[in-house]
Design a protein around this nucleic acid. Structure first.
Lengths: 213, 213
DNA sequence: CTGATATGACTCACGAGTAAGTTACCACAG
DNA sequence: CTGTGGTAACTTACTCGTGAGTCATATCAG
């Protein structure tokens, strides 16, 4: 009676690797749904069913935890992009295949999209490093496709290419975001929508790469 | 000696309307350069050369001050868009003219762009109302242009239109943002760049609407 | 003397990060 | 098969800085 009841300290004995994964899962969802700045470490601890100091024990800081989430989420997305890129499709069909893969990857865990694109997290230290690594891996894919288009049109200005690439990446993000904002639409439906939209702008598109998977 | 020296309280006697404008100007710059969340009211007071309580006297809260900034900035931008829209240009040329007007408007005060597009400000209360008003005024212009393009292509699906509109607005934002990220490029140069980029995607464009002003 | 303009010095809530202690489990000596 | 000590997992209850918002007061024009 003299000492307070320390309800269940140490009784769970979950292995560190397992616990870390549980925490990262809960944190990805919380950060992704509310943004970095608006999410407190206490919120995440509660969602993960553990206490705050355990997070600091394992991840060092709020930034450290976010970097771990970023590593997980960005790894998932880049792996998917690299997978579709390896399929050998080219031109606009490749853009469609990449979007299709993104919709399918995001469907069971849509929150990681906002996690990767969150602007409320400072681009410094571990977070900045993780983001830079991610962007470096992504950069080439979009860049090559846009360069191909520009060369076909006879434009080899480097800054034109840079601006066009920015416009393309932004369009890609807009389409994904639009889809996330319209739940109930399946990845298949959204991919077909993208095919229609691209056809409106660019004319007929070869969609044979989509039928197989 | 007994009472502390209250250096210069009330000695300036600047009229409220004037002071409010000074504060809004300083706040627009501070919010636009650092974002809503990362800017403290004390920072703004210092930049404006006055003290914190005066801001609360005139604007009630940090949100109130931000809403006033938004009213000023979004008003400037929508006025410019409505001006170019009234010139009667249509199709892709209208998109170019609108971008051109945006570059010229933003050149002397580039920070208001980020102010209007800041995601760290909550979309509630006065801020949400101001943003909604702004978006409502903007919506029609982009929407009509996109609808025209879609009809020409024989696509009248409402959701396709919605997604295409989102893609267009995103591209517009990306081009403006790219320009802001590449200082030293004049509005004229950037407009010509946009003409080249649009030509790459859509083919030849009528630029006669640009030569006059 | 009244009201508008203005400020120094506070309060207070919130959230990141920490100190110190608690419990369970396991390896190993006797 | 029993004590016993080391360690990993875990918690409660704090500190402490920061920034939004407030109060009481000061100055001056009309």
């Amino acid at each position: 009676m003299a000492t307070s009841t320390r309800s269940n300290a140490g009784t769970k004995g979950v292995a560190r690797a397992v616990r870390e994964q549980q925490i990262v899962d809960a944190a990805c969802r919380a950060f992704g749904e509310s943004g970095f700045a608006a999410t407190s470490v206490a919120d995440i601890a509660e969602a993960a069913g553990i206490s705050k100091p355990l997070i600091y024990n394992y991840f060092g800081s709020k930034e450290g935890l976010y970097a771990a989430c970023l590593h997980h989420a960005a790894g998932t997305l880049t792996a998917e992009i690299e997978r579709t890129a390896a399929s050998g499709t080219v031109g606009l069909a490749r853009a469609i295949v990449t979007l299709d893969g993104m919709f399918r990857t995001l469907e069971p865990q849509p929150w990681i999209w906002r996690l990767v694109n969150d602007s409320t997290a400072a681009r410094e230290g571990a977070i900045g490093a993780e983001l830079a690594k991610y962007e470096q891996r992504i950069f080439t894919f979009g860049h090559d496709g846009v360069a191909e288009l520009m060369q076909l049109a006879g434009n080899d200005d480097a800054r034109d290419l840079s601006a066009m690439h920015a416009a393309w990446e932004s369009t890609f993000r807009a389409l994904v975001t639009w889809w996330l904002d319209h739940p109930g639409e399946t990845p298949e439906q959204m991919t077909q929508r993208c095919v229609r939209l691209f056809s409106t702008v660019f004319g007929q598109i070869d969609t044979s790469a989509l039928t197989a998977p």
